[in-house]
Amino acid sequence: MARERSGRTVAHLVLATRLKTLREAAGMSRSEAANALGAHQATVRRIEQAETSLDEGQVHTLLTAYGAGPAEIEAFLGQLAVANLPGWWHPWRSVMDPWQLDLMSVESAARYIRVWEPALVPALLRTPSYARAVDDVRRPDLSPGDRDRRTELLIERQKRLRHQNTTIWAIMSAAALHTFVGDKDVMAEQRQALRAAVERPDVTLQVHPLNGPCHPMTGMPTVTLYRVDVEDIPDHVVREGNPRGTADVFNSLHAVSAYHVLMDHTCVIAPHPDESKEVLT
């Protein structure tokens, strides 16, 4: 399992990868780069793998050692300054689940998100009322005010994903349509929102019927796959279902590939998206 570090943003990963590329282009080993930095080569390895924060002074020294000119160094440090700014989600960090703190930068750069939801409407397709009703049941440990703020965060996530044209492909069990969340008005509003969502070009929804065949995701908790179209940034998988908002996060090729295969097979077994539209009427 690979757990993302707070502050290890996609922007940092991109810059760290560029530092490695520049070092290799300069024909320098990590040991030589470490000598220029006056540090152990393990420090250079951690910098290049974004396992530590990118310090402006260290980055400047490395870029100079790699033969970068003043203009390139200035541009790189400018990008680093932007990467070090708090993410848009910063105001909500006190009510975020641990995995959200770690993965929000990945979600904010994702071009493709796939979701399996076994019993409820997928979070990224929930209405504010439905989302709040879910938290009322699942997160009694939080104050009503904190639950309101979590709903605000979810709605902001949805808006930003639409703005960045992220494709969402969700598979959910028809159980979600029969599980009463909130009152009848909340459920009616949620159904209407789903009908509207599936008409959007950025959303694909498959609803697995209650009397449908067993499929590879049967019995699994909520699973979300993130794909970022940035070279050297791996796909990520979030498997929820642990107490109080905790989750397992994976980014190893083996784990991610395994979940991709499971999701692919489940999509083949589930009804076509057009059939799912009919279920929502």
Rank of each mutant, 00 (worst) to 15 (best):
residue 171 I to R: 05
residue 172 M to Y: 10
residue 172 M to G: 15
residue 172 M to L: 14
residue 173 S to W: 03
residue 173 S to V: 13
residue 174 A to Q: 13
residue 174 A to I: 10
residue 174 A to R: 08
residue 174 A to F: 07
residue 175 A to P: 13
residue 176 A to Q: 11
residue 176 A to T: 14
residue 178 H to R: 09
residue 179 T to R: 15
residue 179 T to I: 14
residue 180 F to Y: 13
residue 181 V to H: 10
residue 182 G to I: 09
residue 182 G to S: 03
residue 183 D to R: 10
residue 184 K to F: 03
residue 184 K to R: 08
residue 185 D to V: 05
residue 186 V to W: 04
residue 188 A to Q: 09
residue 188 A to Y: 04
residue 188 A to L: 07
residue 188 A to M: 05
residue 190 Q to N: 00
residue 191 R to M: 03
residue 192 Q to K: 10
residue 194 L to F: 01
residue 196 A to P: 11
residue 197 A to R: 01
residue 198 V to I: 02
residue 198 V to M: 02
residue 198 V to C: 01
residue 200 R to P: 04
residue 200 R to Q: 11
residue 200 R to K: 07
residue 201 P to E: 09
residue 203 V to M: 10
residue 206 Q to L: 09
residue 206 Q to A: 14
residue 207 V to D: 05
residue 207 V to I: 15
residue 208 H to P: 09
residue 210 L to C: 10
residue 210 L to H: 10
residue 211 N to T: 15
residue 211 N to A: 14
residue 212 G to C: 10
residue 213 P to Q: 11
residue 213 P to G: 13
residue 215 H to C: 07
residue 216 P to D: 14
residue 216 P to Q: 14
residue 216 P to N: 08
residue 217 M to W: 03
residue 218 T to E: 07
residue 219 G to T: 13
residue 223 V to C: 11
residue 224 T to C: 09
residue 224 T to E: 08
residue 225 L to A: 00
residue 225 L to Y: 04
residue 225 L to F: 04
residue 226 Y to N: 03
residue 226 Y to M: 00
residue 226 Y to I: 01
residue 227 R to W: 00
residue 227 R to L: 01
residue 228 V to Y: 01
residue 228 V to L: 02
residue 230 V to M: 12
residue 230 V to N: 11
residue 231 E to G: 08
residue 231 E to W: 09
residue 236 H to F: 05
residue 236 H to S: 05
residue 237 V to G: 05
residue 239 R to I: 14
residue 240 E to L: 08
residue 241 G to N: 11
residue 242 N to M: 15
residue 244 R to S: 08
residue 244 R to L: 09
residue 246 T to N: 13
residue 246 T to C: 08
residue 248 D to Q: 14
residue 248 D to A: 06
residue 248 D to T: 13
residue 250 F to R: 06
residue 250 F to K: 05
residue 250 F to Q: 03
residue 250 F to A: 02
residue 252 S to K: 14
residue 253 L to D: 07
residue 254 H to Q: 15
residue 254 H to W: 12
residue 254 H to M: 11
residue 255 A to C: 06
residue 260 H to F: 00
residue 260 H to P: 01
residue 261 V to Q: 06
residue 262 L to N: 13
residue 262 L to H: 09
residue 263 M to F: 08
residue 263 M to P: 09
residue 265 H to M: 03
residue 265 H to N: 05
residue 267 C to D: 06
residue 268 V to F: 00
residue 269 I to K: 01
residue 270 A to I: 12
residue 271 P to E: 02
residue 272 H to T: 05
residue 274 D to R: 15
residue 274 D to M: 09
residue 274 D to C: 03
residue 276 S to H: 02
residue 276 S to I: 04
residue 276 S to P: 01
residue 278 E to L: 06
